[in-house]
């Protein structure tokens, strides 16, 4: 499926970018990332201009990358500062540099030719908030990014694909409200379960025994950032009219959906919680559980990718009520693909 260019995408977590060269392919463009000695993250095209050798398989020398094949050397901007055996550096000896913004422990890169506006990058502040504890990971997906968008926008699949972890019957059975904010370019999907079974994911991490009031409020900022505000409370406990919602447990589930190639995707996932923040056993449990859930999705979406690749063109899929949010997300992505500067309208 086509890509939405001229947008910001998450290339890595901050702690992945260091003094080791990191290769990531985003929207089909190979990038090499590293951290300069001053601490700034750098993203350059991962192909030496000379004979295309991947710079990610080369070495750092201070803030420059020395190509592992013939020694062409590039600075942080992508300009070549040394070529072997001669004084003159050809005018065209440079690799593309990508705009980078590091925010909320995420390394965002701008993919496109238009002028980037860092102010349009959506926020995930819980990932860098001392009041929250975060577990996170990244799963490479052998499936197109649209399948992950579909998956995350329709959480009714939790009941069937993730039963025993985060799914209970009430998720699929509770009606949703979908809102598209045209000005901000955001899709909201709200599912409020007043009286629900508590899945193991939350029973074991919060200690709640018995039934719960469970709210799922999705904010999707296409194309890349997906937020799920998860509120868990003993059944019948609602937020007070004023003041903090301290009787409830809050988990901020963050996904960054970064297309790698037409048929592969980086699935960045994180769970930030405001409860049991110092309890490492809860962190370990949530990490293992969410990793399992993500891998259940990965297995299913990898299978779907193969199914789609083998099917005849113009297969007519069916959409029902549970797909209302996913359909809205698809439309905003399609609009971005058709309008190169749509990000500026946020």
């Amino acid at each position: 499926m086509p890509f939405a260019r001229n947008q910001w995408y998450v290339a890595a977590y901050s702690n992945e970018v260091g003094r080791e060269l990191l290769a990531r392919t985003i929207l089909g463009e190979p990038l090499v990332l590293y951290r300069a000695t001053a601490g700034t993250a750098v993203a350059l095209a991962d192909r030496c201009v000379h004979r295309r050798f991947p710079l990610s398989q080369s070495r750092l020398d201070g803030d420059t990358i020395v190509c592992g094949y013939h020694g062409f050397t590039y600075d942080e901007t992508g300009s070549c500062v040394f070529v072997p055996g001669q004084q003159r550096i050809p005018r065209t000896a440079r690799v593309a540099g990508y705009p980078v913004v590091e925010q909320d422990t995420l390394v965002w890169v701008w993919i496109g030719d238009a002028e980037p506006d860092p102010g349009t990058i959506p926020r995930a502040p819980w990932l860098d908030d001392p009041g929250y504890t975060v577990v996170r990971g990244m799963a490479p997906l052998n499936a197109r990014y649209g399948l992950l968008v579909d998956n995350l926008m329709d959480l009714s699949h939790e009941t069937y694909l993730h039963g025993g972890y985060i799914g209970t019957p009430e998720v699929a059975n509770t009606p949703i409200t979908t809102t598209v904010d045209e000005e901000k370019g955001v899709v909201h999907v709200s599912r409020h379960m007043d009286d629900a079974e508590c899945p193991p994911f939350y029973a074991r991490s919060t200690g709640i025994q018995g039934r719960i009031t469970r709210w799922q409020d999705i904010e999707y900022h296409p194309p890349c950032l997906y937020l799920l505000h998860s509120r868990i409370a003993p059944q019948g406990v609602y937020p007070p009219a004023e003041g903090p919602d301290s009787a409830a447990f809050h988990a901020e589930i963050v996904y960054a959906i970064t297309p790698s190639t037409e048929h592969t995707t980086y699935d960045f996932w994180a769970v930030a919680r405001d409860f049991a923040v110092d309890d490492e056993s809860v962190s370990e449990y949530l990490y293992q559980s969410n990793h399992t859930v993500v891998m259940q999705d990965v297995t299913a979406l990898n299978t779907l990718e193969q199914v789609i690749a083998a099917e005849p063109e113009r297969y007519q899929e069916l959409s029902i009520n549970i797909d209302t949010g996913g359909l809205a997300a698809r439309r905003l992505i399609e609009r971005m693909i058709g309008a190169p500067t749509v990000g500026a309208s946020r």
Binding site: P125, W126, P175, I176, T177, T178, T179, V180, D181, E182, E183, K184, V186, H188, S190, W215, D217, H229, R231, P239, P244, D245, A248, H250, E252, D274, N321, T324, A328
Partner: peptide, 19 residues
């Protein structure tokens, strides 16, 4: 808290309720 108490508000919203 950051959890929204209600539905989003704004001037240009499309909304679909599943009754």
């Amino acid at each position: 808290m950051t959890v929204p108490d209600g539905l989003p508000t704004g001037d240009r919203l499309y909304r679909i309720h599943w009754l």
